[in-house]
Design a binder for these strands. Structure first.
Lengths: 172, 172
DNA sequence: GAGTTTTATTCAGGATACCTGACTATCTTT
DNA sequence: AAAGATAGTCAGGTATCCTGAATAAAACTC
């Protein structure tokens, strides 16, 4: 009962967090002269992150790993190629496949970018940081389950779930 | 020192959270036959949320409140008008201004939508929910400060900060 | 081995969320 | 009344996604 109230309170704070962070993100992007925006949890950033954990994936593998359509994936990869952050090359074993590799510049970009710690974490104590990490772990796992279950599990999709579980190990 | 490690851990989890939630969001949107997606922390949803706290704002006020350009705001408002969720009418006091009001349908939509509690909160204990709420409060406050400071504070901008502080009171 | 089906990728086109720049009304100041 | 500030609009652009339709290579079928 009171649990529900607590859930509502947290839910409100989460909406607020989403909104304010999004706003802050937009402002940062506006003020940033170079359009270097790569929020790492969408679009090109997502691809980069995936490759940093597992270089040399094919476009198709990227798409299934990231739950994107092949077309979206192709679009992001092409943009990254233009920026010299990744390379595309046809596989010799299966000439249909295109294998994507990070360039040095790409790897470098990920390193500098992912080492940035958002300012707002500095207001938290050690104890709070531990709590947050712990809570987010639970939430993320719950979301992974949601993702795996939400797709009508065709016999084919089942094999993809295995891949999706790797996703889980990215951020350890 | 060890604080930095904890910050890094939390930062990683936060990136993961952003990514997985974004993915789950996209999937939900795909499976949803009607394209009723309104993530509430961007675009049209943001406007709706603002009006639910404070009906009858002008477009300009919405824009400053939400840190959007007047043009973006106009776009979202027009889309909402088409969906019969809000109404536009010229102010009598100042004929330049357009006052935006929620329709019954709009209010209804917000009610049903904002009463939804994300599934992933159900995996948390009462204690964890309290911790999360507490932590997010701190983080959000820190982000508000960031937003207020990040804009080159022209003399004019200063007056807007007052408005932005209202933003803060939305989710109590 | 020829014919069909399945895959991996691409091209074309569409939606939404933002943005900047260039107007047009309508106050407000001087 | 002229000049300036303010609220909105129109036009056009970028990024992230999507669906649908086409192609080429591999795998399966008989």
């Amino acid at each position: 009962m009171s649990n529900l109230l607590k859930q509502k309170a947290a839910a409100g704070k989460l909406i607020e967090f989403g909104m304010v962070r999004h706003t802050a993100d937009n402002i940062a992007q506006r003020n940033n002269d170079k359009n270097e925006h790569q929020s790492f949890f969408q679009g090109q950033g997502k691809i980069l992150l995936a490759l940093s954990q597992n270089d040399g994936l094919s476009q198709k593998e990227l798409a299934t790993n990231l739950d994107l359509t092949a077309q979206s994936t192709a679009e992001f990869v092409n943009k990254l190629v233009k920026k010299n952050l990744v390379t595309k090359e046809k596989s010799d074993k299966d000439r249909r496949m295109t294998v994507i590799h990070l360039t040095d510049l790409g790897r470098q970009k990920i390193d500098t970018e992912s080492s940035k710690i958002p300012d707002f974490l500095e207001v938290l104590s050690d104890e709070e940081l531990d709590q947050l990490t712990n809570i987010l772990t639970k939430i993320n796992n719950s979301l992974y389950d949601e993702i795996n279950n939400s797709e009508q599990p065709t016999l084919f999709k089942k094999s993809q779930q295995i891949i999706k579980d790797h996703f889980r190990d990215w951020f350890l």
